[in-house]
Computed example of a mutant assay.
Amino acid sequence: MTASILTVDDSASLRLATRIALTGAGYTVAEASDGVEGLAKARSCRFDLIITDLNMPNMDGLTMIRQIRQLPIQTGTPIIFLSTESDDGLKQQAKAAGATGWLVKPFQPEQLLRITQKVLAR
Rank of each mutant, 00 (worst) to 15 (best):
Pro106Asn: 04
Glu85Asn: 05
Ile20Met: 12
Ala25Cys: 02
Gln92Glu: 14
Ile20Lys: 13
Glu85Trp: 00
Thr77Ile: 02
Val119Asn: 09
Leu113Tyr: 02
Ala96Tyr: 00
Ser11Leu: 04
Gly24Trp: 08
Gly35Trp: 10
Met56Tyr: 06
Thr52His: 03
Arg114Leu: 11
Arg114Asp: 14
Leu22Trp: 04
Lys95Asn: 06
Ser33Pro: 00
Ile80Glu: 08
Ala99Arg: 07
Cys45His: 13
Asn58Gly: 00
Ala97Leu: 04
Arg19Asn: 09
Arg69Glu: 12
Thr18Gln: 14
Thr116His: 07
Tyr27Cys: 05
Thr2Gln: 11
Thr100Met: 08
Ile50His: 04
Asn55Arg: 12
Ile68Lys: 03
Thr52Tyr: 03
Leu39Gln: 07
Arg43Gln: 15
Leu22Glu: 11
Val8Gln: 13
Ala40Asp: 15
Thr75Gln: 13
Leu62Pro: 09
Trp102Asp: 06
Gly35Met: 05
Leu16Glu: 14
Trp102Asn: 03
Ala121Cys: 05
Ile5Gln: 04
Val36Leu: 12
Asp87Ser: 14
Ile79Thr: 10
Ala17Trp: 00
Ile68Pro: 09
Thr2Ala: 15
Gly38His: 10
Gly89Val: 09
Ala3Phe: 05
Lys105Asn: 02
Phe47Ile: 01
Ala99Tyr: 06
Leu16Cys: 00
Ala12Met: 07
Glu37His: 09
Gly24Asn: 04
Thr18Glu: 14
Gly101His: 11
Asp9Ala: 01
Ser86Tyr: 05
Ala32His: 09
Ile73Thr: 12
Ile20Ala: 09
Ile80Asp: 10
Leu120Glu: 08
Glu110Met: 02
Gly24Tyr: 04
